[in-house]
């Protein structure tokens, strides 16, 4: 049984004074436990909408989502979400932002400190707990967002273009850290990105989506052996990496 299964998922948005807009049209997808799936596609292909529906932030017009065979009807502590931007509450410190998720999960406040320190250390932010978001760089803020999702110990992590607003260098550093992190933890991960490099670098399979209406065009397996984190920069020079990157680029270019 797949960890996550999406069946015939359709999402239509009402448009005032016109026919409704179909953001997702009959999406089917199975994700195995511990798999890293990246979603790429031109803007308007519904990749973010799909992620938000799986998280329960939006409801599907029709279709079904199951986790471990059980239908999903709304948000749950079994899923941890990382937002692209404005993902932290600016009036709470890094530790309090993580505490927010812990409190929401019903974990007693007495145990927040220990968990918070552990997840901050995991993302390399040991000692930054008392900083407010505006005192942290964009990359550090995203690490806090990842730490918060990790804190509730979800079975599936969903990341919506988490590095999309970062500069190229920070982005690559975080990609490498993400690679190390996910290979250590072996969590099931859904990762939306508009970067082909990011997708090839991180994912086991890349889901290519096409716009208007949003559909899955192709699922490309990335057979670069793991652990990839130890390769560092050399990963991007391997023949597999270059070949997959080229293949995905060509497919995306056809869609635009």
């Amino acid at each position: 049984m797949p960890k996550l299964s999406v069946r015939n998922l359709t999402k239509r948005f009402p448009v005032s004074g016109g026919p409704s807009m179909t953001a997702l049209d009959g999406v089917d997808l199975d994700v195995e436990e511990g798999e890293f799936i990246a979603f790429v596609g031109p803007s308007g292909c519904g990749k973010t909408t799909l992620l938000r529906i799986i998280q329960g932030l939006e409801t599907a017009t029709s279709g079904e989502i199951r986790i471990d065979g059980k239908p999903v009807t709304g948000p749950g502590h079994d899923r941890g979400f990382v937002f692209q931007q404005y993902g932290l509450l600016p009036w709470l410190t890094a530790a309090q932002n993580i505490g927010f998720a812990l409190e929401a999960k019903g974990i007693p406040a007495a145990r927040h400190g220990e968990t918070t320190e552990r997840v901050l250390a995991t993302v390399g932010l040991k000692g930054f707990g008392d900083r407010f978001p505006h005192q942290l760089s964009g990359g550090m803020q995203q690490r806090v967002g990842i730490a918060r999702a990790l804190a509730i110990e979800p079975e599936i992590m969903l990341l919506d273009e988490p590095f999309g607003a970062l500069d190229a260098l920070t982005r690559e550093i975080l990609q490498n850290e993400m690679l190390g992190l996910t290979e250590r933890m072996g969590k099931t991960i859904l990762f939306v990105t508009h970067s082909v490099d990011e997708a090839v670098c991180l994912a086991d399979r890349v889901v290519v989506m096409s716009p208007r209406p949003g559909r899955i065009r192709e699922i490309v397996p990335i057979d670069i052996p793991r652990p990839r984190a130890s390769l560092g920069e050399a990963l991007r020079d391997t023949p597999e990496y270059v070949a997959k990157r080229h293949q995905l680029w060509t497919q995306l270019m056809d869609l635009v």
């Binding site: 998280q55 329960g56 932030l57 948000p75 749950g76 502590h77 979400f81 937002f83 931007q85 404005y86 993902g87 932290l88 509450l89 709470l92 927010f100 998720a101 409190e103 929401a104 999960k105 918060r148 509730i152």
Partner: peptide
């Protein structure tokens, strides 16, 4: 965006009032 955070992590109504 801030309300989405509350929703994604299943914050109670009281928490959404108080913290967001």
């Amino acid at each position: 965006h801030y309300l989405d955070i509350g929703k994604a992590f299943m914050a109670s109504r009281f928490m959404v009032y108080r913290r967001i």
